[in-house]
Nucleic acid binder design. Structure first.
Length: 579
DNA sequence: GCCGTTTTCGGCCCGACTGTTTTCAGTCG
């Protein structure tokens, strides 16, 4: 079993133990162990061979033994036995709001509930309301949760969540009682998907704000309403939380609710190591609870980090992945901003499956103030997308050359192609035609189910083609819709570096591929990227903003991103790429 | 189950809200 699969098993053990009513700290130990494996950058094989498993923070002797058993045999007796002792139906009951391990255990032990169906039956029969610790409201809430569980448990694309969140934040800021307001949570951290929305507001008079928040249009349900916190469920199924704190606590609350959980745990541990307790309300003496010395002046996150001798950690880096160690020793790289972009390279026109003409795309790029735009329509194997054959490619090269010569648009147009990587790793167009293009993006659009080693070799062969400039959407994933295909990312990254090939950040909000989790390490090894919107219309060019957010999340600064480079430098780069 | 200038036991991040209870457990983030 590989690292990822083992981490999944450990995580599931945690859930199963939770359902058995085990010690919550033991549950967390398994979850921590799973996470430690997921974020392990070394090869698991080597760590095991060198007997260093239990040196990983969060992995002790017990977990190390289980990891080795899973790694060597693909099975774990402890896990099999545990799984057999918990009805499968209990796992999915955790998705129902208000039900956690303890309540599910009671329902199972007292009423024999072993599935969502049987849970619904006992609720309707009035048996749940009679249980100690439950009541009529609990039963109603469970029934509602069952009815809506698909909508409630669904995550949302960052792009869509952002569209919902923006007007709410604007509305909050316009209220006279609100001194400051921000969004927090995974939206602020630029995660590719968002579970719910978090808003933080500063005010001394929370009541009218809470009323406004819970009475907005599109509110399907108010699930909590208090002085400092309210929760609503929107018609889309998306949940939104609002916290209101006095202005003095705003920085602490904003930091706290921005998270991540892992980042917060580490920050609190850092505070504790200095005899201080950190919460959303401030910093206090761990012993007597009095406010920490000189902490009353902390009115921004910058000041909070400074107080703990850390440089400012940008929100998107707060994932508990080593950012605190870096902040201890100095500053972060100068993260890329949307205004650093001077163009982009993976765009379609109506020659293949885009909806706008070449000229409309050129005009749109110019309106964005860009210096250049690369056109990369599909190649002929993408028949469904009206891909271009050799003849049409030659024609388009000519069209682009002529349009450039008219000087009609200030943005220089590059002629490229999004060339299909065929099943065996060869490219879909003749070498002769590929050689005539300014640049070539290579992508996979078919045969997604090849085994990992075959898929990896296929992509690497395409990378090694002398005309290849960059690799498009590395894993083919569609967020929340289609899994990535199996591929050894590390090997592909190494091959790209060895061949001077760029790996794009596909900025389409459904893709955001290659994943941000790989970029910090890959860029440190020398990999370059291009933030590409994969635009199929002029409107789609704005997707680059989603790509910039992911690049920031991957710790990238403009030097690693070729479409932040000036025209001359980019021209030279893609020209020199041709071998 | 993990971890250790409180080191092999006894902690483990912290607080709000709900629903049930009548002082608090469970859930959630």
């Amino acid at each position: 079993m590989n690292k990822k699969e083992i981490a999944e098993v450990l995580g599931e053990i945690g859930t199963l133990l939770e359902l058995k009513g085990e010690n919550p700290f033991k549950v967390r130990a398994y979850q921590n162990g799973a996470r430690a494996l997921e974020t392990l950058t070394e090869k698991l094989e080597e760590v095991i061979a060198e007997g260093r498993l239990n040196q990983i923070k969060g992995v002790g002797d017990a977990l190390a033994k289980k990891i080795i058993e899973l790694y060597e045999t693909g099975q774990l007796a402890f896990y099999e036995k545990l799984k057999a002792s918990v009805p499968e139906g209990l796992m999915e009951m955790l998705d129902i709001p208000g039900l956690g391990g303890k309540k599910i255990k009671v329902l199972h032990d007292k009423l024999g509930v072993d599935s969502i169906e049987s849970l619904e039956q006992v609720c309707r029969a009035g048996k749940v309301a009679e249980l100690a610790g439950f009541g009529t409201k609990s039963a109603e809430k469970i029934l509602k949760g069952i009815k809506n569980r698909e909508a409630y448990s669904k995550r949302h694309l960052w792009w869509n969540a952002h569209e919902v969140a923006e007007p709410i934040l604007d509305g909050l800021r316009k209220l006279p009682e609100v001194a400051r307001a921000e969004h927090a949570g995974s939206l602020r951290r630029n995660r590719e998907t968002v579970g719910d929305l978090d808003f933080i507001a500063a005010s001394d008079t929370p009541e009218p704000i809470m009323n406004w928040f819970t009475e907005q249009r599109d509110v399907a349900e108010v699930t909590a309403k208090g002085e400092t916190k309210s929760s609503i469920r929107l018609d889309s199924g998306l949940q939104a939380d609002l916290r209101i704190v006095p202005l003095k606590q705003f920085a602490f609350a904003l930091h706290h609710f921005t998270g991540s959980k892992e980042h917060n745990v580490q920050m609190r541990q850092r505070a504790l190591s200095r005899g201080l307790s950190l919460s959303e309300w401030g910093l206090s003496d761990e012993q007597d609870g009095s406010p920490a010395k000189n902490s009353e002046g902390i009115d921004s996150e910058e000041a909070l980090f400074r107080y703990l001798d850390l440089s400012f950690i940008p929100p998107e880096l707060r994932e508990g992945l080593g950012e605190i160690e870096v902040a201890e020793n100095g500053d972060f790289p100068d993260l890329v901003k949307t205004e650093n972009l001077r163009g982009c390279f993976h765009n379609h026109t109506n020659a293949s499956d885009g909806i706008n003409t070449l000229e409309e795309m050129a005009q749109a790029a110019q309106s964005l103030g860009w210096e250049y735009l690369g056109l990369a329509d599909h190649s002929k194997a993408s028949f469904q997308a009206n891909g271009l054959n050799e003849e049409r490619v030659i024609q388009q090269i000519d069209d682009i050359r002529k349009l450039n010569e008219t000087g009609k648009y200030t943005a220089k147009l590059f002629s490229g192609i999004e060339c299909d990587i065929l099943t065996d790793g060869s490219l879909d167009l003749s070498d002769d035609v590929l050689g005539k293009l300014d640049y070539v993006v290579v992508s996979i659009h078919a045969s997604f189910t090849q085994p990992k080693d075959k898929m990896t070799a296929r992509i690497i062969r395409a990378i090694e083609h002398p005309s290849t400039t960059m690799l498009g959407h590395l894993t083919g994933r569609l967020l929340l819709a289609r899994e990535a295909y199996e591929v050894d990312v590390e090997k592909v990254v190494d091959a790209a570096i060895a061949n001077d090939v760029v790996i794009e950040i596909n900025a389409n909000p459904h893709r955001l591929d290659m994943d941000w989790r790989h970029w910090r390490k890959a860029a440190a090894k020398g990999l370059l990227t291009s933030i590409n919107p994969d635009a199929h219309s002029t409107d789609h060019l704005e997707f680059v903003d989603a790509g910039v957010r992911i690049a920031r999340k991957g710790w990238l600064s403009p030097e690693s991103i070729i479409n932040t480079w000036p025209l001359k430098k980019v021209e030279k780069f893609i020209k020199n790429r041709k071998r």
